[in-house]
């Protein structure tokens, strides 16, 4: 065989081998594993952020005059104020599955935490006071639904103050004093 032909064949074989190697690596080899590794990392990050925290919310039912507990899991949040807001939203949403303690149109406008007093301030919209049906028992159920559930699940909170539309009201409908914050009273809870 002519030497020139041999060189051509060897060159073609090398080119074929290199091309094959590149195709192999790019389709299913090291490159793909590298991409998979990156995906794996992002999945792990997502799993970390979905860590859940158990809370226990006590609701009013027709079965008992005492509030009964139900457990929930909420996505963990290192920011306790944000976590409290999520917790309160859950309390309000889930109330529709139980006996409510506030009018349907009630919304929580703002939530504050006063650190040095270990006090949470809950500011409800005006509909609370406009549509509240009255009664001492009704007011007690409303106040302690929020005060007890917040203090029970957030040990750093010692008392809760209730405002309506940013204002301090003397009472909700003529009974319980609302000018002052409330400490929890768990006699209304069946623990």
């Amino acid at each position: 065989m002519n030497k020139k032909i041999i060189y051509i064949l060897i060159s073609l074989a090398v080119i074929f081998f290199v091309t094959s190697l590149i195709i192999y690596l790019s389709s299913s080899g090291t490159f793909k594993r590298a991409i998979d590794d990156k995906k794996g990392e992002s999945e792990i990050i997502e799993e970390t952020s979905q860590e859940l925290e158990k809370v226990k919310i006590f609701f009013l039912t027709n079965r008992s005059s005492l509030f009964l507990p139900k457990e929930y899991e909420i996505e963990k949040n290192e920011n306790r104020i944000e976590f409290l807001k999520i917790f309160l939203a859950l309390m309000i949403d889930e109330s529709s599955n139980f006996v409510a303690t506030f009018p349907e149109q009630t919304r929580l406008q703002s939530v504050y935490y006063i650190d040095d007093k270990q006090m949470v301030v809950l500011d409800f919209n005006e509909e609370l006071i406009i549509n509240f049906p009255g009664g001492s028992r009704g007011e007690i159920e409303f106040v302690y639904f929020f005060v007890n559930n917040v203090c029970y699940n957030f040990k750093e909170v010692k008392k809760v103050k209730i405002l309506v539309a940013g204002n301090e009201y003397k009472t909700l409908s003529g009974h319980l004093d609302l000018e002052n914050p409330y400490k929890p009273n768990y006699k209304y809870f069946r623990r």
Partner: peptide, 29 residues
């Protein structure tokens, strides 16, 4: 009396509880 819990019934007599509120802390806060 009145409650959202329609089954609630019976008389209730209350006297004041000064412990339940934290008047002083509130005023100062």
């Amino acid at each position: 009396n009145s409650s959202y819990r329609k089954s609630a019934r019976g008389p209730e007599t209350y006297f004041v509880s000064l412990k339940a509120t934290d008047k002083i802390s509130s005023q100062l806060a």
